[in-house]
């Protein structure tokens, strides 16, 4: 885990008569892709805009890359890229002009202009379309251009508000791959979305916002010390399988029958190997032994349910 790149402390944000963010604290480490999830009106966009230095909270502090955003918003903008949920483009420009404008607007020096434009276009796979006019682009390509504009100054942090909205499945897939590539190039991303299944593909942290509060922040990485869910399937009926699994001290049986069992156990590969070895030695015809993919949607719904029950 890297150092905290986005650090929000006790943030209170109000609109006239409405408390939009209620004492929100949040920390996103360098190199993470954090998913900001929650229902409409939960405060996701307000939080993103506050981090981007586009809104003035009532109190609290926001640091991006150790820079106080509220005190030095203009300097912070040089470290942040932001794509709003409803963004606009200059339709009458060509892609090259649009990127040229974005580069100049972000203060990139004249001698680095061309290389910055080419790099941004390359990152977003737009290099063949630089002469094309913006109003000729599809929704997916417009989205890519908007992201290219937002990252042309190579910010450390990229904030994306509902970036996949309105995209077809192919474009969404390409967007997921792009986010992972940007992460690999050293960027830290905060992405808000309603489509949890997609966030699962690339997010490493889930931040749940509900009624202006952060009710949970959990890592989606599985470390060796954490537990994970495994599915064990036998080729032939094995009525004693569930009871046999219950005998292992580190294994918790979630549900099971003579064919198919779901268990929780440490993510440590040696522990899992040991269990498999013992099952096979006991004569169970195990033909499937694999961790279940982590279900973000389930996890989110569980968190919200728990929060509402506690309330």
């Amino acid at each position: 885990m890297g150092r905290a790149l986005i650090e929000v402390k006790n943030l209170v944000f109000e609109y006239p008569g409405t408390l939009a963010l209620d004492n929100v604290s949040l920390s996103i480490a360098e190199g993470e892709i954090a998913a900001l999830v929650g229902p409409n009106g939960a405060g996701k966009t307000t939080l993103m805009r506050a981090i981007a230095g586009l809104g003035t909270p009532i109190s609290g502090s926001i640091q991006v890359d150790r820079l106080d955003v509220l005190r030095y918003p203009r300097q912070a903008h040089q470290r942040i890229g932001y794509l709003a949920d409803f963004f606009g483009l200059y339709d009458e420009l060509t892609l090259r002009q649009a990127l040229h404008y974005a580069a100049l607007a972000h203060g990139i020096d004249a001698e680095k202009l061309t290389s910055s434009i080419e790099l941004a276009a390359q990152r977003l796979q737009l290099e063949d379309r630089l002469a094309q006019q913006v109003n000729e682009l599809s929704r997916g390509l417009s989205q890519r251009l908007a992201i290219a504009q937002a990252i042309i100054h190579q910010p450390n942090v990229l904030l994306l508000d509902e970036p996949a909205a309105g995209l077809d499945p192919q474009a969404r897939k390409a967007l997921s791959e792009l986010f992972l590539a940007l992460r690999d190039q050293g960027m830290t991303l905060l992405v808000s979305s309603h489509i949890l299944a997609e966030l699962e593909e690339y997010c490493s942290v889930m931040v749940v916002v509900e009624q202006g509060r952060i009710i949970d922040q959990q890592s989606l990485h599985t470390t060796q010390s954490q537990r994970e869910t495994l599915r064990i399937v036998c080729a032939t009926p094995s009525p004693t399988l569930p009871s046999a699994l219950e005998h292992y001290p580190e294994v918790e049986l979630i549900r099971g029958d003579q064919h198919d069992c779901l268990v929780q156990l440490p993510a440590d590969p040696s522990v899992q190997h040991q269990l498999l070895q013992q099952l096979l030695s006991q004569g169970f015809s195990v033909h499937h032994f694999a961790p279940m993919p982590r279900n973000m949607q389930e996890s989110y719904l569980q968190t919200v349910k728990q929060y509402q029950e506690e309330k």
Partner: peptide, 14 residues
Amino acid sequence: DNRTWDQQRMSAIT
């Protein structure tokens, strides 16, 4: 109207 104002506000333009 064109929703480009936020992008300009996020820029380094003085």
